[in-house]
Design a protein around this nucleic acid. Structure first.
Lengths: 159, 159
DNA sequence: TGGCGATACTTGACACGTCAAGCATTGTCC
DNA sequence: GGACAATGCTTGACGTGTCAAGTATCGCCA
């Protein structure tokens, strides 16, 4: 006798899913939405959005030599066509510095500022705690399983 | 010797993740972003967004007696505070009909229209195909595993 | 039956997502 | 070395996400 999936109750649906793939899709979307909110509450404390936080981390990783605008976009976890305006807002807050590249004047190089680094330092512990907490019911082996499945899933879409 | 996770290459990162939980979080966000785009391309053909599509499906499920605005919001896959304006746009397109509830004049009941049903019928096959295609590299058993892991993941955040 | 909290939205303001068009600058090929 | 495509953004327009404050209506309880 088939078990009634809990996600049907969460979304108050009466009819079952037409296929397991449909169910998995909905479940993925739902789960990630919950996680995003969970993370958003962390970054909200420091008045930045998750996207802005992602940019700052990329800039910190890039270090002294800076990094051009579109290179940031390509490293974002979630695709972000509005990268220019995202950087505009970060620059307005004084968390980012920008300058046209002298070697190739088409590019605009970006750096994180000292206040930006401080903000990242503040958020380090809360974000790590949130991630750990979200996954606390999964064992190390289960997380590995999840990672392998997700990687395979992505490979069919990006290919 | 530890394998280098592919997601590090996808995001062009040099440093490894501080923990498996961090890696899983990033992988989930990334994977779902890819899937959302994949689905978005389907619904885009019919000039609706994935959120609007979700609303229409909820309305179809509700049937003849209609369903109040906030009840729709609570059934959305992804939480949607802007439900009112979403319905405004669907109404403007003639896909949705709204009327203040006579029994409780605080509520606004919503129905899907005939053109709305036709649009859903059009999208049925492409969406099902996209879902099936996204998961084609996973076996039935693997999808079940994924579903179980996601459900456990959600239970820690919503509780 | 009148007042008061709860409910069900609605509106405003601003950040972000998404697509298309536009504008320098650079590399390439004749 | 001059045209022309490619690159690297930038801008505009509109839909959505998110939070807070406002409005109308209802239920309840003195």
């Amino acid at each position: 006798m088939p078990r009634r999936p809990r996600i049907l109750d969460e979304l108050r649906q009466t009819r079952p899913f037409p296929s397991r793939a449909d169910e998995a899709l909905v479940s993925l979307l739902r789960t990630t939405d919950v996680l995003r909110r969970h993370l958003g509450r962390c970054t909200h404390e420091s008045e930045v959005t998750p996207q802005q936080y992602n940019v700052l981390r990329i800039l910190r990783g890039a270090g002294e030599q800076g990094i051009p605008t579109l290179e940031i976009a390509s490293r974002m976890i979630e695709q972000t066509p509005g990268i220019t305006r995202l950087l505009d807002r970060l620059e307005a807050k004084g968390l980012v510095r920008r300058q046209r590249c002298p070697e190739d004047r088409r590019q605009v190089l970006c750096w994180i500022t000292e206040p930006g680094l401080e903000l990242l330092a503040e958020l380090e512990a809360p974000v790590a705690r949130a991630a750990k907490e979200a996954f606390r019911k999964l064992s190390a082996a289960e997380i590995d399983t999840l990672l392998a499945l997700l990687e395979r899933l992505r490979s069919t879409c990006t290919a």
